[in-house]
Simulated scan of single mutants.
Amino acid sequence: MSKRIALAIDSLAGGGAEKIVLTLAREFKRLGHEPHILVLSPHCDYALPADIPVHFCFDKGQRHIDGLLTQHLAVKKVKQWIASLSSLLGAFDVFFSNLDRTNLLLTKAQVQPLYCVIHNAIEEELKRELKLGPLAYLAMWRAKKALNHQQLITVSKGIENDIIQRKRIQPASIQTIYNPFDIDAIRHSAELPNIEIPDGDYIIHVGRVAKQKRHDVLLSAFAKMQTQLPLVLLCNKPRKALALAKKYGVADRVICPGFQDNPFPWIKNARLLVLSSDYEGFGNVIMESLICNTPVVSTDCPFGPNEILTQAFAQFLVPRREPATLADKMEQALVAYPPIGDTDIFRKIDIEYSATQYLKLIP
């Protein structure tokens, strides 16, 4: 029986969670269901699907909708928005909520049946916000506290285990469903021509310019390498990235083409992909790189990389915040890397397998 599925998220900015929501929606549609993408704010870097309805709640100029003083108004609007959609379309069989703001507002609006998808390392996010000050920490903590007594889906076993062991959050239920990847579509997209891609060998990093991604560690490691290859940074703030590259003396070897809706030809043609993050939820780009048959070196950050880079690939996990070690492993990977095949993790992240795990949760 076809199910009406709501996939809710903060925005469709160019991040990993946003890409996962779009991927899941397409697969639910292919499997004969009726997905709807519910977006709080109309910030869209990704192209909107032509055959899947996308609904926006707040106007472009509305900010701080989940602030302490404005939250009650936002919750009221979300309730009215969902009631209006349900009246027009029929009741939704399930809501899959993604990212902090959406999780907070949908839980406060008492939307049911609801599953909150956790895309990042909760304790690491809280540590980061604490460094920014008490107000930032309290805002983050409000969003995390809203997960109490909710049904949670985590995108890696590391996140699930951390929540269970820390006991900061007491979920009604919790389980891991790995992020879905359309392996055939990624490999097809990787073959599409792109005249912007540099001729010759290069190293690549894909990720927004944010403290979590540690571009400072990446560029420091890059500066220490003896191999003088260019570094391509696919990111959302190329000017900021180039300014940071200048600080580390490598701006002349860094290429910043900006955000790419299709990063896969860039990844496929690279000699090596590097992840330098302090923390992740899963590390989507690692999986995408392996699918494109491109070697990966990654920090062994919580969580995800050590669930992907296992067995022979585990030697290319390095401690966080160690540029010299990262540089050494990058050099090693350029010389010799294990053959990349469809290992067990490929089965677990297969798009139909992941989507089926979600569908089993629908009442």
Results as ranks from 00 to 15, higher is better:
Ser2Ile: 11
Lys3Arg: 05
Leu7Ile: 10
Ile9Val: 11
Asp10Arg: 08
Gly15Ser: 04
Gly15Phe: 09
Ile20Tyr: 04
Ile20Trp: 10
Leu22Arg: 14
Thr23Phe: 09
Lys29Arg: 09
His33Asp: 03
Val39Ala: 13
Ser41Tyr: 10
His43Trp: 15
Tyr46Ile: 10
Tyr46Val: 11
Leu48Trp: 08
Pro49Glu: 07
Ala50Pro: 02
Asp51Val: 03
Ile52Asn: 15
Pro53Leu: 14
Val54Tyr: 06
His55Cys: 11
Gly61Lys: 11
Ile65Pro: 03
Asp66Cys: 13
Thr70Leu: 15
His72Val: 12
His72Lys: 14
Lys76Phe: 11
Val78His: 03
Val78Trp: 07
Ser86Phe: 13
Leu88Lys: 15
Leu89Trp: 15
Asn98Arg: 12
Gln110Cys: 13
Gln110Ser: 14
Gln112Thr: 10
Asn120Gly: 01
Ala121Ser: 15
Glu125Tyr: 04
Arg128Leu: 13
Arg128Asp: 10
Leu130Val: 05
Gly133Asn: 08
Gly133Met: 13
Pro134Cys: 01
Met140Ile: 02
Trp141Ala: 06
Arg142Phe: 06
Lys145Asp: 13
Ala146Asn: 10
Asn148Leu: 07
Asn148Gln: 08
His149Tyr: 00
Gln150Gly: 05
Gln150Thr: 08
Thr154Val: 05
Lys157Phe: 06
Asn161Arg: 07
Ile163Pro: 09
Gln165Gly: 02
Lys167Val: 03
Gln170Ala: 09
Ala172Met: 05
Ser173Phe: 09
Ile174Met: 09
Ile177Asn: 10
Pro180Arg: 09
Pro180Tyr: 10
Phe181Arg: 07
Ile186Leu: 01
Asn194Val: 01
Glu196Asp: 14
Ile203Val: 14
Val206Gln: 00
Arg208Asn: 02
Ala210Gln: 02
Ala210Thr: 00
Gln212Pro: 06
Arg214Cys: 02
Leu219Glu: 01
Ser220Ile: 01
Lys224Pro: 05
Thr227Lys: 13
Leu229Lys: 11
Leu229Pro: 12
Pro230Tyr: 08
Val232Ser: 07
Leu233Thr: 11
Leu234Phe: 06
Asn236Gly: 04
Arg239Glu: 14
Arg239Cys: 02
Ala241Trp: 05
Lys246Gly: 11
Tyr248Cys: 04
Val250Asn: 15
Ala251Cys: 08
Val254Pro: 02
Cys256Lys: 08
Pro257Trp: 01
Gly258Trp: 12
Gly258Ser: 08
Phe259Asp: 00
Gln260Pro: 00
Gln260Glu: 01
Asn262Ile: 00
Pro263Tyr: 02
Phe264Val: 00
Trp266Thr: 01
Ala270Thr: 05
Ala270Trp: 12
Leu272Arg: 04
Asp278Val: 03
Ser289Gly: 00
Thr294Pro: 10
Val297Lys: 00
Ser298Asn: 06
Ser298Val: 00
Thr299Asp: 05
Thr299Trp: 08
Cys301Ser: 06
Pro305Val: 01
Pro305Met: 07
Leu317Thr: 03
Val318Thr: 05
Ala324Val: 12
Ala327Gln: 12
Asp328Met: 13
Val335Trp: 05
Ala336Thr: 15
Ala336Ile: 13
Ala336Cys: 12
Pro339Ser: 15
Pro339Gln: 13
Ile340Gly: 01
Asp342Thr: 14
Arg347Gln: 14
Tyr353Thr: 15
Ala355Thr: 15
